[in-house]
Design a protein around this nucleic acid. Structure first.
Lengths: 206, 206
DNA sequence: CCTACCGATCGGTAGG
DNA sequence: CCTACCGATCGGTAGG
């Protein structure tokens, strides 16, 4: 009877296993498309037994989303420490975002889309955390415009919506099996987003 | 008994009403989060009566998504006729995209996210139509790089992913109640996306 | 488009 | 974490 159970499950306890399988299933089938029986089957329990570990289906969704948003916000805390230059901050924020997405694209899709299924209170808490994340981009852009390194002629709201939209769409196409690392993708995506494809008229005529 | 029924329903027949209410409900609660009973209640029928007008829940989802994708592709057909300049084509495509989103942001969210719930055959048909849409952006970018009007130093895949991500995220924030029209938003978004916020070093020193 | 219904499944709980 | 179960709801159909 030695070395069975916990070891075979990679030392995951009941809650951890439930959390992991629920994340996978919510990502694949959606929250409303996943039943507690699906989760129970995936973790090898009977449906009623799940409730020895969790309070409700919604509490599970909330834990998944909140944990995901927290990773994004913590990544920004590291970014803030890297520089005072808004150009560097924005580039590092893009790279950090891609890194967090790359950790678990499926979880990120849940974070971005399935907060709609939370009850009023949980949804409000989540949207507050997401607003904090988005605020960094708005403020960094504003600082860069003031410093004269970002284009003051652009609509700031559209720049931020465009940037965040591009970033929030990354889990739709990022593949952990692709040849490029998250770091390489982050660099190239930052180049593309910060510069835009358009070549300006060159005042030297060259 | 005059002037009741059809007139009060704005001349919508059964199928049209079902289609409209299903679009609204799938947008608000998701496909798997909406029951046929929800739809029946919204249109004022009993659940079983829906099947006099539709074949199945999935056929309804497919009709909504296919109709939505077709609007995007038809809008691009108009764009193709406007110019040969890749810069103009890309700008007009961005504006067209925003216009289609603005028509019905809820339907667009279904188009972008709920194709996952289609069966294999319907999903493949949809993804093919979406690929055709995305191909326009890839090709227009390539043409612009060849013509020397788009930056050849950027990773083309990242430019297209960034652009399409920003566009596909628009239904998340676009509000028909906002002060700006779809046309104004499209212009400003195109400026932001095509130029990027970063100011290049000016060779004239100005 | 209604009446009446099918078998299957839902989130969750009492008591151990 | 299992046994045994609750009332509610699911997509869909036969026959009119």
């Amino acid at each position: 009877m030695w070395n069975t159970g916990a070891a075979a499950e990679q030392a995951s306890d009941g809650y951890t296993t439930i959390f992991r399988e629920a994340t996978r299933l919510f990502g694949e089938r959606g929250y409303t498309g996943t039943s507690m029986r699906d989760i129970a089957k995936a973790v090898g329990m009977l449906p009623g037994s799940l409730y020895a570990h969790i309070a409700s289906k919604e509490s599970l969704l909330f834990a998944i989303i909140e944990g995901g948003v927290d990773r994004f916000n913590h990544a920004l805390d590291d970014v803030r420490a890297t520089s005072d230059d808004p150009r560097v901050l924005l580039r590092e924020a893009i790279k950090a975002h891609v890194r967090v997405v790359a950790e678990n694209p499926g979880r990120t899709l849940i974070v971005f889309h399935q907060w709609r299924y939370l009850g009023d209170e949980n949804r409000a808490r989540l949207l507050d955390k997401r607003a904090r994340y988005e605020h960094f981009f708005t403020e960094t852009l504003r600082a860069g415009v003031s410093a004269g390194v970002f284009d003051a002629g652009l609509d700031a709201r559209m720049v931020v919506f465009g940037l965040l939209g591009a970033l929030n769409w990354t889990p739709e196409w990022f593949s952990p099996d692709g040849p490029a690392t998250a770091g390489e993708i982050g660099e190239k995506l930052a180049d593309a987003l910060l510069n835009g494809p358009l070549i300006r008229a060159d005042p030297t005529g060259g």
